[in-house]
Design a protein around this nucleic acid. Structure first.
Length: 137
DNA sequence: GCCAACGTTGGC
DNA sequence: GCCAACGTTGGC
């Protein structure tokens, strides 16, 4: 099992939208690093859902329900999508400011590679953030 | 294959 | 609205 994090600008697609939709196609990724991460996702992997621009916090955990396939928003075969479904909502969102201030969590790719829209999360980071978010898996 | 110019992302 | 970080493009 691997752990990931995706960013979304809430005015475009928020965690609430995902809860309402029950599942969504994660499309529109046009960055090779992010694309490679999408390709590495396995069914059942857990994915933090982060609100960028507004909120600046991790708000939920989604689950990979379908592994990568051609991104339906383009005919260029370089780009892929996965399907995500909501899994758990964090009782207490974990903010970027908090992560940056934590000597352990500041190593997370979300902080280190701030422009990457799909990033990796280690198991330890994942569990720590779940604890902070008061969410039980 | 290097690197300057430029564009984009996203936090502040 | 600014700017740092970083990816991409294109000339050489």
């Amino acid at each position: 099992m691997n752990y990931w994090l995706v960013k979304s600008e809430p005015y475009k697609y928020s965690w609430k939208n995902l809860l309402k939709d029950k599942k969504t196609t994660w499309d529109g990724v046009r960055n090779y690093g992010a694309r490679n991460n999408l390709k590495s996702m396995k069914k059942g992997d857990l994915v933090f859902f982060y609100h960028s621009n507004e909120g600046l916090e991790i708000v939920g955990i989604a689950k990979v329900v379908k592994e990568f396939f051609q991104d339906p928003t383009t005919t260029e075969t370089a780009w892929v999508s996965v399907e995500l479904a909501p899994y758990k909502t964090l009782k207490k969102p974990v903010t970027l400011a908090f992560l940056k201030n934590d000597s352990f969590l500041k190593e997370i790719e979300l902080v280190r590679l701030s422009r990457l829209s799909v990033s990796k999360v280690t198991e330890t980071q994942f569990l720590k953030i779940c604890e902070l978010g008061e969410v039980t898996l």
